[in-house]
């Protein structure tokens, strides 16, 4: 499994060891940037988010602890939070959305992280494709678009009280398929 020494590198980063920080940076830069781009569809925001996420790791503003789960999951949660916040802020300021399809690339450098990521991506996409369209949509609106419960209710024409149950059901269904297909959903 990738990143077995993530936690050690993290603590060394917090103590301002540049070499450890660089190792963590190289390991996760592309994933953080690509995930932020997936959420915001905007390269400028994805760049800002990536810089912010890593700098806050260095200066200790975002603090990880082992009871928060795996380091990689925590880092991606921090990335999602910042991406959602920045996207909302940019919309309030009527930012020009930058559709930048040219930037989608074939794999170039293959690191341990990208190799595992490629494998997981295929698995997740296959699993998502097996879900009913409504379930696919609710996951997109909830997780990738970060919509509020009421907005999801309105969009999907569902009673507000049922939204959470629907999201949970879709995610559990997805988790089940991933588990069956690859058995790597957790590790």
């Amino acid at each position: 499994m990738i990143g077995t020494d993530d936690v050690q590198l993290y603590y060394q980063t917090v103590a301002h060891n540049r070499h450890s920080f660089e190792q963590l940076y190289d390991r996760y830069e592309k994933l953080v940037f690509s995930f932020s781009y997936r959420l915001t569809n905007n390269r400028t925001i994805a760049e800002e988010v990536t810089q912010d996420v890593f700098l806050k790791l260095w200066n200790g503003t975002n603090q990880y602890a082992e009871d928060k789960g795996k380091f990689s999951s925590w880092l991606l949660t921090v990335t999602r939070n910042k991406s959602i916040d920045e996207l909302r802020k940019s919309k309030r300021h009527a930012y020009e959305p930058m559709l930048d399809k040219d930037s989608l690339t074939e794999e170039t450098v293959s690191t341990e992280v990208t190799a595992e990521w490629n494998e997981r991506r295929e698995l997740i996409r296959t699993a998502i494709a097996e879900l009913r369209a409504e379930q696919q949509e609710i996951i997109e609106l909830f997780y990738f678009k970060g919509f509020s419960q009421s907005k999801i209710a309105e969009h999907c024409k569902l009673p507000l009280g049922t939204v959470k149950g629907r999201i949970r059901l879709a995610l559990k269904h997805l988790k089940g398929i991933i588990g069956q297909e690859g058995g790597v959903s957790n590790e």
Partner: peptide, 15 residues
């Protein structure tokens, strides 16, 4: 429940 989803992202070229 959502921990797999970030890995659904397409790899994008980093500046």
């Amino acid at each position: 429940l959502t921990e797999d989803l970030p890995y659904e992202s397409e790899a994008v070229e980093v500046p």
